[in-house]
Amino acid sequence: MEFKQGEIYWVMMKDTATTGAEQKKDRPYVIVSRNQINRLGQHVVAVPFTSKLRHACAHRILIPTTQMVPNPACARKLVDSVALTDHIRVLDKSRLEQPKMGDLSETARLGIEGALAYVFDIR
């Protein structure tokens, strides 16, 4: 299974095969690691989304659905979200629910890149 930068996945905190239930902490993440890295190991680097728009602030980027391309094969619905760039995480690929929820637009993906540069103070 190939994972690409800018793809949005529903991420399960625990293995649903053992828990059988969705957790409160399950949520969408967008992959931000470059594709070369995504092909290497069993992990990707990703930024979590929240649907609570009041979290939007300087580096926490508001992503309207107009900047997302939904995957028609996915039953989960994309909603206006905030990318919590300061909660960037390493994720186990096995926790990324298939199929993907969708993709970010190029502008939004690169906008998150800019916010991450700010978070890490990369000038």
């Binding site: 625990k14 902490k25 190991g41 929240t50 609570k52 979290h55």
Partner: peptide, 21 residues
């Protein structure tokens, strides 16, 4: 070591203090 780090990251996420989606 890679696997340990990944497991540790996922375990940390269980404790992560973000509001419910």
């Amino acid at each position: 070591e890679d696997q340990e780090l990944l497991d540790s990251s996922m375990a940390d996420m269980e404790e992560m203090e973000i509001e419910e989606y």
